[in-house]
């Protein structure tokens, strides 16, 4: 129950034993690992972030009694099980070379300098993350990922230079680092994927030309007078304008709907 307030003891609750870094505590069986650690009395400094499964702060390894396999989880998203042996890993020194997205061609992008070609981009990944090419294909990373990402697949895609597909496969990565911790080839998969996603976003995705048009209009001051008028309007006038707004239909196709009233376009 992540309702934030402390979870206090109740009479009707079923308690189960869990082992936090080897020490045994009895905790309610409905709690997530994170809540259970707090119920046991810990106050997190590291290892706790968004508490909603998206920040990657609470990567956790655990083992269940009688099972040889090491399991992974996000502490904030996983309910405790009896006998669980828990270890959180809040930090990992991943490999992450610095780079300048603007000068991958050797010169600053824009102003007549052509954007780096696909080969240049692929080569830059090879230079920065040569270990990606030493994947041994064990798939431990894919089994480890708490976001169910097929990590080994995107590692292979990066190797082949299919950066867009690698971007798609790795998109929901929360950068908890559990994949890299377990990798026998010592690949920092998640930092390599971060680099690849930025390359894709910057250089391999079609640019939003309409956005540039609008920015030019804004910078030319096209809306300044109209906005100034709106700013100085009395509330009654604004309320009337607000109430009279047309609403773009939910299912209209892009660019299909045309408003009747165009005074403020």
């Amino acid at each position: 129950m992540d309702d934030g307030n402390a979870v206090n003891q109740k009479n009707d609750e079923k308690l189960v034993p869990i082992h936090i870094m080897g020490r045994t505590y009895e905790v309610p069986d409905s709690l997530t690992i994170m809540k259970a650690v707090e119920y046991a009395g810990h106050q997190y400094i590291r290892g706790c972030g968004c508490r909603g499964g998206i920040c990657g702060a609470c990567g956790t390894f655990y083992r269940l009694p009688g099972d040889y396999q090491l399991q992974t989880a996000l502490a904030c998203q996983t309910v405790v099980q009896p006998g669980m042996m828990i270890m959180q890993l809040p930090y990992f020194p991943a490999n992450r070379p610095d780079y300048d997205l603007e000068t991958l061609n050797g010169k600053r992008d824009g102003n007549g300098v052509p954007p780096p070609s696909r080969d240049v981009l692929h080569e830059s990944v090879r230079q920065m993350y040569p270990e990606v090419y030493r994947c041994v294909g064990c798939a431990t990373c894919s089994r480890t990922c708490p976001m169910d990402i097929d990590v080994m697949d995107y590692v292979a895609l990066i190797g082949r230079g299919d950066l867009e597909k690698a971007t798609e496969v790795s998109f929901s990565c929360i950068m908890c680092g559990l994949c890299a911790i377990r990798c026998p080839a010592q690949i920092s998969q998640y930092t390599a994927a971060m680099y690849v996603r930025r390359l894709t976003g910057r250089y391999l995705t079609p640019k939003a030309e309409h956005l540039r048009t609008r920015v030019t209009q804004v910078q030319a001051g096209q809306y300044d007078a109209k906005l100034a008028r709106l700013r100085s309007m009395r509330k009654e006038e604004l309320v009337a304008l607000y109430a009279a707004r047309e609403r773009e239909p939910d299912l209209s196709k892009p660019g299909e709907w045309k408003p009747k009233e165009t005074a403020w376009l």
């Binding site: 997205l101 971007t167 998109f171 996603r197 930025r198 390359l199 894709t200 976003g201 910057r202 995705t205 079609p206 640019k207 939003a208 030309e209 309409h210 956005l211 540039r212 609008r214 920015v215 804004v218 910078q219 809306y223 300044d224 906005l227 892009p254 660019g255």
Partner: peptide, 28 residues
């Protein structure tokens, strides 16, 4: 509201993966 389009353009330039149509138009 005035700075908004520039803000989105800045993010696009940094490589943020906005949802787009194949022609680059932003899905909104």
């Amino acid at each position: 509201v005035r700075d908004a389009p520039e803000a989105v353009e800045w993010l696009e330039r940094l490589g943020v993966l906005f949802d787009k149509y194949p022609d680059g138009h932003m899905k909104v």
